[in-house]
């Protein structure tokens, strides 16, 4: 077993374990802190897949911004007279059944499909430095690029900023 496989196993174990902790812990602040671990281990998986730009964006946006936002809203919405801050509802058993069924279905479908699995045996190659290629593919005005979806994404972010301010402000 080479080093990359061991690294993959470690990151996968951290990912699944801390995701299970997020959905099972009774204290919601602990769950939110385990969410940071999920995001960090996912960034490690991206680096393992030669996607270092996505990994850095993941750390910046998810582990930085989204986690802080979630922790802030947990602090602003704590209810002191509830026993547990993160209870399960009545459909928890059905939800577990649905999730287990879906997982089994996806893994069964993957095991049935040999064509994709065969053509991708070299999942990890040695070339690094794909930020330039991503930038060209995202912004370039002359070659084939995703510049129009990028502009639409900026519009989505603007609408989200204005919407969050309008929804979240105090009413007089």
């Amino acid at each position: 077993m080479d080093l990359a496989s061991i690294v993959f196993l470690v990151f996968a174990a951290i990912l699944v374990g801390s995701a299970l902790a997020v959905v099972t812990l009774r204290n919601i602040v602990h769950a939110a802190l385990f969410l940071v671990l999920v995001f960090g281990a996912a960034a490690g998986i991206y680096i393992l897949l030669n996607a270092e730009f996505i990994a850095i964006v993941q750390i910046l946006v998810y582990a930085g911004a989204v986690t802080i936002l979630i922790l802030f809203s947990i602090m602003l919405t704590q209810n002191p007279n509830s026993r547990s801050s993160n209870p399960l509802n009545r459909q928890a058993l059905i939800a577990a059944g649905i999730a287990a069924l879906l997982c089994a279905g996806i893994i069964f479908a993957l095991s049935q499909n040999g064509a994709i699995a065969g053509s991708a045996s070299q999942a990890v190659t040695a070339n690094v430095g794909n930020a330039v290629n991503i930038g060209t593919l995202l912004y370039s005005p002359t070659t084939y690029s995703y510049v129009l979806p990028f502009e639409i994404a900026t519009l989505v972010l603007l609408v989200a900023i204005v919407g969050a301010i309008v929804i979240g402000r105090e009413e007089e």
Binding site: V16, A19, L20, V22, V23, N86, P87, L88, N89, Q91, A92, I94, A95, A96, I98, A99, A100, L102, C103, I106
Partner: peptide, 11 residues
């Protein structure tokens, strides 16, 4: 699937 369980089963 872990995330789906979390989204469906929390209050």
């Amino acid at each position: 699937c872990i995330g789906l369980f979390g989204a469906l089963s929390k209050r």
